[in-house]
Design a protein around this nucleic acid. Structure first.
Lengths: 125, 125
DNA sequence: AGGCTGTATCGATGTTTATTGATACAAGCA
DNA sequence: TGCTTGTATCAATAAACATCGATACAGCCT
């Protein structure tokens, strides 16, 4: 049930450290990989789903608990969960009748690293 | 030239600290605000533009240096820059003939905070 | 003023995406 | 076996988006 995950973002830069947005201009490939993940986060429903999963105490959430939290059809929720999974942000497992989702924290951590701004930036921001 | 920025993300949670994805389920409004910013990052061209701006030494980049780095028309680059600006990620100023963009690091920092995962998560991730 | 260059906006177009109802698949239970 | 429930997939549709050419705007220069 977790085949088609993105591999993405393993690629440390050859020329030193810190694969950060502000370190050096992203090359096309890396930008494309990152964009896929950010795009997955770029929807309010998916953000809420991810947050519900990530903040769950046991670490797992049943789809049956997620779906009724939205005024959306069951296929729509299923679709959004699939996108989050394809982005490598969550994974899932069927256990009997129900399917449980949990967070893969690694991807969020890597995104956090990418976004980190090293210095007061020199600029005026 | 910097009127229509997003205000977004100032909202600390009433119940304590750390407005993180994994702290508690996002409410609809906050999810919608965050989604706008992530959506702005969810495009490879915009990511590369942002990275080119953020990694620039002087802190500023002339549009005339950005546009030729892509095989895209000038209006398209202008459009992407506008989206990044509306997301509160960058700002710009016309200086004579040219327009210069720079990073607003605050938004990236806030996103980084939101993505931070507090613990080994309890779960299986 | 007129012409030139850099950048933004506008309108149109093709593609992607969110959403849904219908349906298929999986697992439990009678 | 057949029925019921939970979840995923499919096909269709409408909305959102990326892209472009044309054009408008802003500031130089002559």
């Amino acid at each position: 049930m977790s085949k088609q995950e993105l591999v993405v973002l393993g690629q440390e830069q050859a020329d030193g450290c810190c694969p950060t947005l502000a370190t050096a201009p992203l090359d096309e490939e890396r930008a494309a990989d990152l964009a896929k993940v950010f795009k997955a986060l770029g929807d309010p429903v998916r953000l809420r789903l991810l947050s519900m999963i990530a903040s769950r105490d046991g670490g797992e959430v049943c789809v049956c608990d997620l779906t009724p939290a939205f005024e959306l059809s069951q296929p729509t929720i299923s679709h959004h969960l699939k996108l989050l999974r394809q982005a490598g942000l969550i994974d899932c497992e069927r256990r009997g009748t129900w399917v449980y989702y949990w967070l893969l924290p690694g991807m969020l951590e890597r995104l956090g690293d990418v976004l980190r701004v090293p210095q007061p930036t020199g600029g005026r921001g």
